[in-house]
């Protein structure tokens, strides 16, 4: 899948230029990548680049699912809480006495339970949005508060530590030159890219978000369709929770706070419209990398953490303004 990972320096300039117009975020990624390579001593180290990939993968996994939901014209604010729930469940369940003599197999029911919890919360969000017609923003805002509450009830405000060291070893392992977590992210990205661009479900995702009435008229069952996408984002939130807890060998009830905001930031930076109907995984990948590189690079430059937030906020608005300028309908546009 060369096209997923290709950088904007393709051989044919006009083609590359048009590609860049469609994915302006990749121009930005290239600029910050080059900037930090020169501005800091260690950014360009293999070790650090691996770090960037691993750090990016958590937000990135959720962003894959969020892209589908947002192209649908919905949003899911509950992903951070779902992440914490899945992480807590997984880390806790592997230590249950029932599985005590399962050896490393005890990871299997734990991981499956974590993923199932994510899918279930996604399904619940989707079904409520479908059946009640309440806006996804409100429904998932409720879920964000409620699920986080559940996490605290379940964990009794305690952090859990993974008793099976294979769990945290997995988080630190590599496949060839790439960290395993980065490989998982890349494989998932390719899969979702194919889903979105090549399958009937993926194309219907654009139709539902682009013109809901047209989708209904065409006989697409919009409700169940949206539920599937909510389940996908729930799955990825849970998967991100599991990969994040393997990195720490533990889970805390506060895990994933504000992640919904980072994910939405990345997806929007990648060119997905809040109103739905437009967006793609290549853009989302760019958005995720842009945030990952900025955070890592500024960290290396020892920019204080709070300033990093100020800079990221500014960049979000600046990039979207630039995008609007690049993609204006022309000078005859209606000015309201």
């Amino acid at each position: 899948m060369a096209q997923v990972l290709s950088t904007p320096t393709a051989p044919r300039l006009s083609g590359a230029f048009r590609w860049l117009l469609r994915h302006p975020i990749w121009g930005f990624v290239a600029v910050v990548f080059i900037f930090f390579s020169f501005a800091t001593a260690h950014f360009f180290d293999v070790q650090n680049l691996q770090n960037v990939l691993v750090q990016t993968s958590t937000i990135g996994l959720i962003a894959l699912g969020m892209t589908l939901v947002m192209i649908n014209g919905n949003i899911d604010l509950s992903v951070g809480a779902t992440l914490a729930l899945a992480a807590s469940l997984t880390v806790d369940i592997m230590g249950w006495p029932v599985f005590a003599d399962w050896g490393n197999w005890q990871l299997l029911p734990a991981v499956l339970a974590g993923l199932a919890a994510g899918v279930a919360i996604g399904a619940l969000n989707g079904i409520i949005v479908w059946k009640t017609g309440v806006d996804a923003f409100i429904v998932t805002l409720g879920a964000m508060l409620g699920v986080r509450g559940l996490v605290f009830v379940y964990t009794e405000e305690q952090s859990f530590y993974a008793m099976n060291f294979a769990y945290s070893d997995f988080g630190a392992s590599s496949i060839g030159p790439l960290p395993t977590l980065a490989v998982i992210f890349i494989v998932c990205a390719i899969a979702i890219h194919l889903l979105l661009s090549q399958t009937v479900h993926g194309r219907n995702t654009y139709a539902v978000g682009g013109n809901r009435e047209a989708a209904v008229n065409a006989g697409i069952r919009v409700g169940p369709h949206m539920v599937v996408n909510f389940m996908i984002v729930g799955f990825f939130a849970a998967l991100a929770g599991i990969t994040l807890s393997t990195q720490m060998g533990a889970s805390t009830p506060n895990l994933g706070r504000d992640y919904e905001l980072w994910v939405i930031t990345a997806v929007v930076l990648g060119g997905t419209k809040l109103t739905g109907g437009a967006g793609n995984i290549i853009g989302t990948l760019g958005g995720v990398l842009a945030i990952g590189i900025l955070r890592n690079g500024m960290n290396l430059m020892q920019v204080p953490a709070f300033y990093v937030l100020v800079i990221l906020g500014t960049i979000l608005i600046a990039v979207l303004f630039l995008d609007k300028q690049l993609n204006r309908k022309g000078e005859e546009e209606l000015r309201l």
Partner: peptide, 23 residues
């Protein structure tokens, strides 16, 4: 649906499938 192709719109809701739901 404005951001989709002519072909996709004409067969909206009934895109021809290959295996595994691929268009």
């Amino acid at each position: 649906a404005e951001e989709m192709s002519v072909a996709e719109n004409i067969f909206l809701g009934e895109l021809p499938r290959r295996r595994w739901g691929f268009v």
